[in-house]
Computed example of a mutant assay.
Amino acid sequence: MGILSRTSYVIRSKINAILNRSEDPTETLDYSYEQMRDQLQQVKRGIADLTTQKKRLEMQKKRLEENVDKHNDQARRAVAQDRDDLARKALEKKKAKMSQIEELEGQIGKLQSQQDQLIEQKDTLQNRIEEFRTKKETMKARHQAAKASSTVSEAMTSTGEQFEDVGRAIERAEEQTEDMEARAAALDELHESGAFEDVMSDKDQIDRELESLSSGSEVDAELETLKSEMGKGSETEERDVEADLENEADLEDLEDAEVDEDVEADLAELREEER
C-alpha cells in the first residue's frame, strides 16, 4: 500500500469514526424512513403517469373505433347508391383505422402490464415501508431505553465516585478533628503542669522547688506569728467555752430528773386505779 493510499485510508477511517460518534441512530432511522416514503411517492407518481398514458391510448382507440363504425356506415350508404368507388374509399379508411386500433391495443396491453408490475412493486415497497416503520419505532424505543439505562448507570457510577470522595472527606475531617482534640488536650495538660511557664521562664525545676519551700516557710512563719498574737485571747475563750458546756450539762441533768419524777407520779396513779 502506497503512502497516498494509506493516507486516504487513515483519513476515511478518521472521518468514519467522527461520523459514528456524532451519528444519532434514531435520526438515521427517521431519515431512512422518509427516503423510503419518497421512493414510494415516486413509484405512485410513475404509476399515475403510466395510467394517464394508457388512458390517452384508450381514448384514442375509442375514437378510432368510432371512425371504423363511421366508415362502415359510409361504405354501406355508398353501396346502396351504387357508388362502389366511395364504398372502396370508406373501406380503405376503415382498414387503416383498424390497423391503428390493433397497434394501440398492443401499446395499451404493454402499458397495462407495466402498470400491474408497478402496482405490485408499489405494494411490496409499501409493505416493506410499514415493516421498516414498525422496526424503526421498536429500535427507537430500544435505543431510548438503552440511552436512559446508560444515563442512569453513568449517574450511579458518578454518584458512587462522589460517595467515595465524600467518605474520604469524612475520614479526613475525623482525623483532623481527632488531631485538634488531642492537641487541645495536650495544651490543657501543659497549662496544668506549668510547662508553658517553664518555657517562658529561665528557672529550672530546682529553682521552682526552692521557691515552693521558701513560700511554705513564709506561710508557716506568718501562721506562728498569728498564733502568738492571738494566744491570750484564745485561752480565755477556751475557758468560757468549757464553762458554757458545764452549765448546759447541769441543765440537762435537772431536766432529766424532773422527767423521772413525773413518770414516777404517773405510775403511782395507775397502780391506785388498778386497786
Rank of each mutant, 00 (worst) to 15 (best):
T236Q: 09
D204Q: 00
E192D: 08
K70R: 13
K95G: 01
L4E: 12
E137H: 10
E154I: 11
K70M: 05
K203T: 08
E175M: 01
L125S: 10
T236E: 12
I206R: 09
R128A: 13
K136F: 01
Q81N: 13
L111H: 09
E130V: 06
K89R: 10
S5D: 11
A146Q: 01
N67S: 13
D202I: 00
D24H: 09
Q39V: 04
Q60D: 15
E103N: 15
Q144K: 14
L86W: 00
S149Y: 05
R21W: 06
A243E: 12
N16L: 08
N67H: 07
D202V: 05
R37F: 00
T134Y: 00
V241L: 10
D220K: 14
E137R: 09
E174A: 08
S8C: 06
V68R: 04
A186E: 01
T138L: 10
S212D: 07
A186Q: 05
V263N: 07
M230G: 13
Q126P: 02
A90P: 03
A173M: 07
R133D: 14
G2K: 06
Q53V: 05
D202Q: 08
K203F: 03
D84I: 11
V152D: 03
N20E: 13
K94N: 04
L19A: 10
M1V: 04
E27K: 15
Q81M: 09
R239T: 13
L111P: 03
A185M: 01
M36Y: 07
L104F: 13
I11T: 01
S5H: 01
D262V: 04
S99L: 10
L210M: 05
V263Q: 06
R37N: 12
K62N: 11
R128I: 06
F163H: 09
N20A: 14
A185S: 12
G216R: 15
F132W: 00
A78W: 00
L226K: 15
L226T: 14
R37G: 08
D202G: 06
A145F: 00
D260V: 08
V259S: 12
V241S: 14
L245F: 02
R133S: 15
R208Q: 02
M98I: 08
R172S: 11
R21G: 11
I101K: 07
E178S: 08
S228R: 14
D240E: 11
Q117T: 14
E211P: 03
